[in-house]
Simulated scan of single mutants.
Amino acid sequence: MGTPEFAAIILKRLINSPFKPYLVITEPDKPSGRGKTLTPPAVKILAKQENIETWQPKYISQIANRLSELMPDLFIVAAYGQIIPKDILNAAQFGGINVHPSLLPKYRGSTPIQSAILNGDKITGITIMKMDEKMDHGPILTQREVEVPNDFSFPDLNTGLAKKGASQLIGTIPLYLSKSVRGRSQNNENATYTKKIIKRDGLINWREKSKIIDRKIRAYYPWPGAHTIINGKKIKICQSHLENDKLIIDRVQLEGKKEMTFDEFKRGWRGNLDFLDKIS
């Protein structure tokens, strides 16, 4: 069970392992882009390429009976987007295990990768846990720390964690099935939770410190995109870096246009760029 690119990377590794799934469950196709074209999730695209049966219920509870009839051995979940009810988890002989990109109980929820970047964390990680009916709450089976480079954006860290998580998963499955690892309970008093990211989170406040703006640019790329509004036009800041604690903008995208270097943008822009004077 999974939906975005993070889950697709893990699925690819499972397909090429002794644990190839015979069923993939993902979210329904959704409108995407300016034309609102109905677009399948990354996991569905890969499953179709590999001729794996795919189900796309709006709500996972809608297929509880069908899953019970299958009598599966194990559910593997990565960034699915819904909490799996207890009756569905119990339908599999070995229940479900989840690949979560943080060092649980830190950053429970749907945006742990963005949260690590926004908070300037030097270390994050991967947790493989046995699932229960609560969000990111079950016993930890294995856990691995991962360094967060200073210049990593969301796609960089997302891909890196997915690849490390896939390797960790392949190593954990046989230990779990043989009961060589039973898991340890999470310390719920230390739990922290991430928030759902919405479009307006990307609007830059140029009065914030440069390091905070830089983190937002990296965490919110490509969606919702850190952006500013100039003369009524939305300008997405796609890439930046810090030099002596000063924010340097590298790449931008004007609404409706292709991404370009900031120098290219300045040569073609006829308006003011007063926001540059506010960067501290």
Results as ranks from 00 to 15, higher is better:
M1W: 10
M1T: 08
T3S: 04
T3A: 10
P4R: 05
P4T: 10
E5F: 13
I9M: 05
K12M: 08
K12N: 15
R13P: 01
R13S: 14
P18S: 10
P18C: 12
P21W: 03
P21D: 04
T26E: 10
E27N: 15
P31T: 06
P31D: 03
T39G: 03
P40L: 09
P41I: 06
V43S: 03
L46Y: 02
A47T: 03
E50D: 03
I52N: 00
E53P: 04
E53H: 11
Q56N: 06
P57H: 00
P57K: 01
K58C: 06
Y59M: 09
S61A: 13
S61L: 07
A64V: 01
N65F: 11
N65A: 14
D73I: 08
F75Q: 02
Y80T: 04
I83W: 01
P85E: 03
K86T: 12
L89E: 02
L89K: 05
A91G: 08
A91M: 08
A92K: 09
F94D: 12
V99W: 03
H100T: 10
P101W: 00
S102H: 06
L103Q: 02
L104R: 03
P105N: 09
Y107C: 05
R108I: 01
G109D: 04
S110V: 13
I113Q: 00
G120P: 00
D121I: 09
T124R: 09
T127F: 01
M131Q: 03
D132F: 00
K134Q: 15
D136P: 01
D136Y: 00
T142D: 03
T142N: 07
T142H: 00
Q143R: 14
V146D: 10
V146A: 13
E147F: 15
N150P: 05
D156K: 03
L161N: 05
K163N: 14
K164T: 12
K164Q: 14
K164P: 03
K164D: 13
G165F: 05
L169N: 04
L169D: 05
I170D: 00
T172D: 08
S178L: 08
K179Y: 00
K179V: 00
K179C: 01
K179E: 02
S180C: 11
R182Q: 13
S185N: 14
N187E: 14
N188M: 15
E189K: 15
N190G: 10
T192K: 06
Y193P: 01
Y193R: 09
K196L: 14
K199L: 15
R200F: 12
D201P: 08
L203M: 11
L203V: 08
R207S: 14
K209G: 10
D214E: 13
K216H: 09
P224T: 07
G225F: 01
A226E: 05
T228E: 09
I229D: 10
G232P: 08
G232F: 04
K236V: 12
I237V: 14
I237E: 04
H241D: 08
N244Y: 12
L247C: 06
L254T: 07
E255W: 03
E259S: 12
F262G: 07
F265M: 07
F265W: 04
N272H: 13
F275D: 07
F275L: 07
